[in-house]
Each structure stands twice: as structure tokens, then as C-alpha cells.
Design a binder for these strands. Structure first.
Lengths: 156, 156
DNA sequence: ATCAATGCAAAGGTTTTGCAAAAAT
DNA sequence: ATTTTTGCAAAACCTTTGCATTGAT
């Protein structure tokens, strides 16, 4: 069970296993494919634990990021968002995001096309890559369809 | 001259050409390779135009981003940063960033390795990519050298 | 019993907004 | 003359922090 592993990881680092920490992780884990803000996590967590505080959410996501249990992502809308990290042995195979600038929808997709790039970076500059993030912006199929009839100028 | 083109673009969109807008662009343009925050732009601009306000900087960078004259980037340090966009005919050839998590240095590099990925995204999901951003994190050569002697454990 | 974690409220820091004055068309 | 833009200050906003209390080991 995933939760048991999490408890172990906490103990290994001398951190305490609390209901709040379990709940925050569970909340994020139970919303796969979403990218929750601290506030959203807070609202969801409150449903199950009304006395939880927003500050605890902020402190907990920091811990979870540090433990590599969740990933921090940002779509430049003023919010930091969190999603379950794929804590594989090789943690560098994150998925990436395509953000529709019309409707804000976020498509996630896998891709390991950066290995060549990362190798080149090491060869030329001695930079060792430990993590990467690819963010694409554009227009999703639905928005293209919907706006297509009207005026393509809007797509610049 | 680049500035003339900028004036044209403003007029085309019904926006007014002001000293403040020219100055903000000039300030960013005269710091190539840097990634200035609004506050930094403000301090630099004040040297030449002391009565300029911070709110003007914020409003101006919004305009510049919308006009595709500058790009918005974030290195997750709590600041939104701005750099000159390469407003080429094909504006999709942005450069990318490798951020050292030890010293915070940012290396910029070019790379067009995403074309295959973007084509695949269109073929499978109908998503049209208009822009992309690649952010790598890791350790730069100097930090590897400096820490290398001490303790490799710190690199996880 | 000890030490970390929580909740609350207050503070922090960046970015936005309201509005009258100034500037551009 | 009209309409946008500016500057200032205040507000809004997300996030962090201080501190006494609670909870975990």
C-alpha cells in the first residue's frame, strides 16, 4: 500500500506521521490528472477534517515536494499547483503539460525526448540535469474547432 | 531600428506610444541574457526616469508580453521574470533554461528538439502548439566541482 | 517527557486596482 | 476634444511566520 511507504519515508527522515500529512497526500492522490492549488487542497481536505488549517497545507506540500512524493507545477496563472509525482527509481520521467491558452485546459503527456538534450548539456557545459519540465502552450482541438468557423486571425 | 517597429506595433493595436513604454522595453533590451523582475526593471528605469511608478512597470510588461515583444519566465523563486523575446517570423524558437539548484545560476541555451513532440501532439490530440518552454534543473559545473570533493551524498 | 506539528492570526512580499491628473492621439 | 496612460496609494492576493497548544514518539 502506498500509504505505508509514505509513513516509512516520513519516519526515515525523522518526521512525524500525522493525520494531516496523510490526508493531504490522500487528497492529492485521489485527484489524478488534476493540478491542485493549496487552496483547493485545503477545501477538499476540510471536507474530511474541518479543523485543518491552510498553513498546514502549505507546510505539508513543502514536505511532500522535498520527499519527492509530489511535484510542483505552475501554469502562470498566479497559483502554484501540485500533482502526484511518479516516484519511480528514475524520477526524471515526469510527464509534461500542454496548456490551452483559450480555455485553460491542461493536457498531460509522457515524453522522454530530452535525453539527447540533457546529454549535450553535460558534454558542452558540464551541467548535470536532475529534473526537467516542459510546458507547451497553444490551442486544444475543441477551441480550434469552436473558433475555427469564426475568425482565424485570433490565433495570430 | 527596433524601436520604430515597436512604435508601429503599438499604433496598430490602438495603444499609445509613451516614454514609459519605450523605456521599459529599452531597459529589458539593454540587459541581454538577464531575466529581470518587475522590481529590477523599476530600479533600472528610475535611473533614467525617476518619476516612473512601479505600477507602470507591471502594466507595461503585461502589454509587452501580449505583443510578444518580451517573454515571461519563472524560476520558482517567487518572482516573475522577463526577457526579450525573439520575435522572429517563427516565434517558436525560444531558448531554454537550465537552473542550478545549488547556486541559482541560469544557463540559457538554444534547442529545437521539440518539433517531433509538437507534431505528435497535433496528430494524436489535435493540439496546436504556439509556444513552448523547457526548464531544466540540476547542478552546474562549478557547483559539482566545489561540492564534489566534499560529499556526493548531497546530490541525492 | 521531549520535540515536532498544528491552528490561528498576523505579517510578508509581489502584483493589481481605483482614481484623479497628465499625456498622447 | 477624446481617450488612454500614468502615478500614487490602497487593496488584493498568495504564501510564510510567530507562538501557544496539541499531538506524536
Amino acid at each position: 500500500m502506498e500509504q505505508e511507504r509514505f509513513k516509512e519515508v516520513l519516519r526515515e527522515r525523522g518526521l512525524k506521521v500525522t493525520n494531516q500529512r496523510l490526508l493531504v497526500l490522500e487528497t492529492i492522490a485521489s485527484h489524478p490528472g488534476e493540478h491542485l492549488t493549496a487552496e483547493e487542497i485545503y477545501e477538499l481536505a476540510k471536507e474530511q477534517y474541518p479543523e485543518i488549517g491552510l498553513a498546514t497545507i502549505y507546510r505539508t506540500v513543502q514536505v511532500l515536494v522535498e520527499l519527492n512524493v509530489i511535484d510542483k507545477v505552475s501554469f502562470d496563472d498566479g497559483f502554484v499547483r501540485y500533482e502526484l509525482g511518479n516516484a519511480k527509481a528514475d524520477s526524471r520521467h515526469h510527464h509534461h503539460h500542454a496548456i490551452c491558452q483559450e480555455c485553460g485546459r491542461v493536457l498531460a503527456f509522457e515524453g522522454d525526448l530530452l535525453e539527447t538534450l540533457e546529454q549535450a548539456l553535460y558534454d558542452t557545459m558540464g551541467f548535470v540535469v536532475t529534473d526537467h519540465e516542459v510546458k507547451l502552450t497553444g490551442y486544444c482541438r475543441d477551441c480550434i474547432k469552436r473558433k475555427g468557423q469564426e475568425n482565424m486571425e485570433e490565433f495570430n
